[in-house]
Nucleic acid binder design. Structure first.
Lengths: 225, 225
DNA sequence: GGATACTAACTTGTATACAAGATGCAGGGC
DNA sequence: GCCCTGCATCTTGTATACAAGTTAGTATCC
């Protein structure tokens, strides 16, 4: 008998279950089901569900049930559009910083000469790709901006993990991250932003080609907890 | 004896009380206080508080109490920085639309020749100023973008309402909104974005000059429910 | 056979009791 | 005077009972 999870843990586990499609989009779940599953009362379940609803990961219909958010490819593309604007703002803000030591550290870790993660498309590499963008956002010292970008990443992760086709594009990723950092370090903001825009648009194009059919056929890829 | 408010109503009322500074930033509130105040049990209070915490309008400390979010002028300035990037994206997306009928309607309502709200700085005018930007975002047909901008507006409203000094700037506001729309209608995206950037930066400059002292001295201005 | 009204089961919303950690203060030890 | 301990109180976290609305199936009426 394991210890009872609290509302926070339940929230995190449900969040992962939704984002990894262990809970199918559109499917209906009830508080009693989850209370049985987690072996707790409805109270912490409700807290977790209400939080997930706030983050648009599910909708609660009064006296009917909870429905897992459906995947809307148009909306995901909209997230990518916003992402381009915000990540370019990150570059602008970093370019105005006095201290570039963090940026230099980040640049070093994506030097293609080192190839830290190798050329294989592993789960770790995919996570590292996302982390690069989040770390860049954190370096900007604009916590509002970093928060928005984290939110975007949560919503595009489903397709991002699938639109990562081959070893060739891994090398491209290394290159592009490295080039973005170096353009910044060379005081060439415009070039850095062009590189960033192309980098994200490439990801968006791949995402736009992902179909719901593919997503469901590749559910096992999405496990990341 | 009025009817008992439900969790949704409690959420909305608390939200207004926080944003209008009827609940002072940093102050501590407990579930029992609010339960007495609203004449309900702790359950709907908890639901409302947890939702407000998710939106960063307060923080819940386990077994200690809830603390109303403090006003962080640096963070508000960060919201403005993000706002500039996102509202310019709105303009980009609108410029790519086929149907500009909504844009034309909006432009008409801000024609300085009509001066719908007059030159006085009324509460209605301030609300209309915010509505202009939200309507513009809605026209873009990018719901993600519109949602982010709504979130930003929620967080900068405190200083936005105070940084609206005189009749002269009212006329400027009419002009700038009208010019932004017309530049778009003339297929001059760059000019529209320049105008938008200046328009928001002016507001940001005024916001940056607002002090916490001023905010507390002008709490009555903030009532808007 | 088809439409309708009723009922039983189910679901979320709310109230209340209890659990458990945090806080502050009083009192004793030194 | 200072520190430490213990207890009373307060707070949020959780469990449970009940309220009220929704749904689906069934029986009844025509």
């Amino acid at each position: 008998m394991e210890t009872k999870p609290n509302a926070q843990e339940i929230y995190e586990r449900l969040r992962n279950m939704i984002m990894s499609l262990q809970l199918m989009p559109g499917s209906r779940i009830t508080e009693n089901q989850l209370a049985d599953f987690f072996n707790v009362s409805r109270t912490p379940i409700r807290a977790a569900l209400q939080r997930l609803e706030n983050e648009h990961l599910l909708t609660i219909k009064a006296k009917q049930g909870c429905y897992v958010r459906t995947i809307d490819m148009v909306q995901i593309s909209h997230y990518y559009d916003v992402r381009v604007a915000l990540e370019n703002l990150v570059l602008t803000e970093i370019s105005q910083l006095r201290d570039w030591s963090e940026l230099q550290t980040l640049a070093k870790s994506w030097n293609p000469a080192t190839l830290f993660y190798g050329l294989e498309v592993t789960a770790e590499l995919k996570q590292a790709e996302e982390d690069f963008h989040q770390q860049l956002a954190d370096i900007s010292r604009n916590s509002v901006l970093a928060g928005f970008i984290a939110d975007i990443n949560d919503h595009i992760r489903v397709v991002r993990l699938l639109g990562f086709p081959n070893e060739k594009s891994v090398l491209d990723t290394y290159d592009e991250h490295f080039r973005i950092c170096n353009f910044l370090l060379q005081h060439n903001l415009t070039a850095a932003q062009d590189e960033m825009t192309n980098h994200i648009r490439k990801s968006q194009d791949q995402a736009n080609r992902v179909t719901l059919h593919q997503i469901y056929n590749n559910r096992q890829i999405l496990k990341f907890d």
